[in-house]
């Protein structure tokens, strides 16, 4: 099976029915993508497939044949963190950090589509990603600080 992961062509052998989450973490060793529930409720496993936020625990790996997959590892460029990632650090938007990869990807897509979202739009965009540590306040602040 072949697809593009964070801009690089990758391939793996095995059943196409395996969860994309497992292929990413186990086969391709991209462990930034997390598992919080395995049933599509928490968003810790969020990745982008052709630019859309998707729960990778619900995707069969076979479905991404030929697709463009982005994980949190793909947000940094040339080893430098993205402005959104830096804002998360500076504003205390990550506590334990397990929701952070999914939050970053969901926020990244929002900011690509809406240059100046308001707080309500940020809440809406992040509603599929659960965080139990932060109360969301600092996550929302961090995303708003990156509006251009």
């Amino acid at each position: 099976m072949h697809f593009t992961l964070n801009g690089r062509a990758v391939s793996f052998e095995g059943a196409g029915s395996r969860r994309l989450l497992d292929v990413l973490r186990e086969d391709l060793r991209q462990t930034g993508t997390k598992e919080g529930c395995g049933e599509g409720e928490c968003g810790a496993c969020s990745v982008l497939i052709d630019g859309e936020v998707v729960n990778s625990c619900l995707v069969a790996a076979g479905q991404v044949e030929g697709c463009d997959v982005t994980t949190v590892e793909g947000l940094a460029t040339n080893g430098g963190l993205s402005p959104l990632q830096r804002a998360f650090i500076e504003r205390g938007a990550a506590q334990c950090g397990i929701c952070t990869p999914g939050m970053l990807l969901a926020a990244h897509v929002l900011l690509q589509r809406t240059r100046r979202p308001n707080a309500a739009a940020v809440r809406e965009a992040l509603a599929g990603n659960l965080c139990r540590c932060t109360g969301y306040t600092k996550i929302i602040e961090a995303v708003l600080s990156c509006a251009t």
Binding site: E41, V122, R123, G135, I139
Partner: peptide
């Protein structure tokens, strides 16, 4: 299950 035990999402959360 997480589908039936609900915790607040960003939409449910108040301004704090």
């Amino acid at each position: 299950r997480l589908a039936t035990y609900l915790i607040p999402t960003a939409l449910d959360a108040p301004r704090i």
